[in-house]
Design a protein around this nucleic acid. Sequence first.
DNA 1: AGGTGCATGTAACAGGTTACATGATTAA
DNA 2: TTAATCATGTAACCTGTTACATGCACCT
Lengths: 180, 180
Amino acid sequence: MAVSEQRTSLTPTGRVILGMLALGERSGYDIKQKVDKSTRFFWAASYGQIYPELRTLEQQGLVRGRPEPSGERARTLYELTEAGETALREWLSSEGEPLYELRDEGMLKLFFSDAVPEQRIEVIRAMRERQERKLAQLEAIHGNAKDMPTGPLLTLELGLDLTRRFIDWCDAAELRLGKE
Amino acid sequence: MAVSEQRTSLTPTGRVILGMLALGERSGYDIKQKVDKSTRFFWAASYGQIYPELRTLEQQGLVRGRPEPSGERARTLYELTEAGETALREWLSSEGEPLYELRDEGMLKLFFSDAVPEQRIEVIRAMRERQERKLAQLEAIHGNAKDMPTGPLLTLELGLDLTRRFIDWCDAAELRLGKE
DNA sequence: AGGTGCATGTAACAGGTTACATGATTAA
DNA sequence: TTAATCATGTAACCTGTTACATGCACCT
């Protein structure tokens, strides 16, 4: 049965899955766990997306799954096919304008804060607090990051850098606004 | 005809619209223009969202629209009602965990770059270029920002700060990786 | 016996984009 | 006259989340 010739237009979640399989994760569950402690800071994924997408990728011949139960508990382990590796590399080398989407309600509140100026500092403090929490999470990941590949390590370091800068800005802004 | 009693659960786009009306924008078109040169960096909106949402908000009694054609060209100008102002202030003062969603394909490429290590620097350079473009846009807005209210000004300055930091990080990373 | 983690999956919903359609006005 | 800008709107689509359901395995 030949793999039907279809466009290999990798969906967003498809990219994450191929990438994670290349890093060695195996089951849908594994992928979700890994996403939650790595890419989730700039690219989240839910089970509702991952499991159906694994099927689609298998139909496209980009991954290969085989049942590998642990005891009585059903489990399917996936791996990249050659076509899958190629698709991953093609995506990583592609030139087109990459997707970038941000929706940040905290920033929006700050932007519109002139409607309730007395709340402005509160808005900034809340933003700072969230960045502080994020920083703690990133630092925790960085703590046990001995054998981390370069790619994950770089994104982690960038995240740490920008988060710290964000916190510094909040502190400076609070000072400035406090003086007026 | 009494405004029916319904939950005033402001949708995401509804918030932007109320905020923009508070800042003085009037038509759906105006709102879209303003979004495109301000909040779009952390909160975008499309016509397909704005026009239907204006209707919904009117049904909820949060905005009031009246036709005000310019010549033969149809146009509807909106303004906040009292209920709308209240809803806006309530949202701005609300405590719940605010929505935050980021999808950054560039970061994802960097994260998975170990699958094609020889492309890594290219990925970083492309990221840097995009930040550079964003910086230019933000600086252009900052240039003619004489009478900008504090809220918009603060978000703009924060955006400038983080974008510059991002560019610095890219430069440093390129140097580091170049040496190996 | 009960809670937590492993493991998979689906249906309903939410929120948003894109492409398209229409037409007036203004500046080149 | 033509292109750009003003102005409104809809239908089809895409992508994703949430809530729910199931059941095994392990630890206490």
